[in-house]
Nucleic acid binder design. Sequence first.
DNA 1: ACCAATATTAACGTTTACGTAAAAGTAATT
DNA 2: AATTACTTTTACGTAAACGTTAATATTGGT
Lengths: 122, 122
Amino acid sequence: MERHTITDLARAFDVTLRTLRFYEDIGLLKPERRGTMRLYSKQDKARLRFILRCKRLGMPLGELRALLELHDTARQDPQQTQALLEKLRARRIALEQQQEDIAAVLGELRFFDEQYRRPRKT
Amino acid sequence: MERHTITDLARAFDVTLRTLRFYEDIGLLKPERRGTMRLYSKQDKARLRFILRCKRLGMPLGELRALLELHDTARQDPQQTQALLEKLRARRIALEQQQEDIAAVLGELRFFDEQYRRPRKT
DNA sequence: ACCAATATTAACGTTTACGTAAAAGTAATT
DNA sequence: AATTACTTTTACGTAAACGTTAATATTGGT
């Protein structure tokens, strides 16, 4: 049962202390406390990994919070579960759009690249 | 040779007028002028499409501007060309990272989904 | 017991990417 | 020609996601 200090976690994920505390402020993380010190569990780590991935994909932290909160409490309420499922579907669609975007942009970059690697005599 | 007004373009790409003017302010777009009015060419359209894709992928507009500017002027200077190629490589790596992220997040979402669609009797 | 290293909260500052009037000129329509 | 619809610039406002002191505990090691 490992527990990490805030600096450990920050280093591991290459974020600042401020970021971790901020994420806690907005309800994304809820580490234990030993006295006043934060202690991050393995689950907290996994959660942070997920958060950072979503963030890299441009997902607003507010929406992410809603999603995680829903996930945390959905069992108690079938209506909430329904809401969660809809959110998941929306996210999926956005992600598929992003896959398209990536493919398209990669295509264009390749085009640029070719254009400059061997300059045309047009 | 189609030329579009700002409202046309805004509707076509589902952005606001403010956005298009803002993009011009920061040097992403440079539409022609007929008098004081902006007229967007087919190239401007393609450029905007590219811009919006990159934006959806979380690319900062400043970086995007640098990339496009480099692309616009690289022919004149082999050093600039080199710089462009490096930017492209960096972008590519970021995009590959995003592909990984998407795969991972989609995986997690699927996990959530299954978890809630048919609740376990654990 | 002491001291450096690390922890805490609180609060104001900053950047990005626009939103939102306001005031005024121009174009299109009747 | 008059009205409506669209356009322009200027400028202040805002939400998100932290950065950056500052002022104070707490801890871990000697």
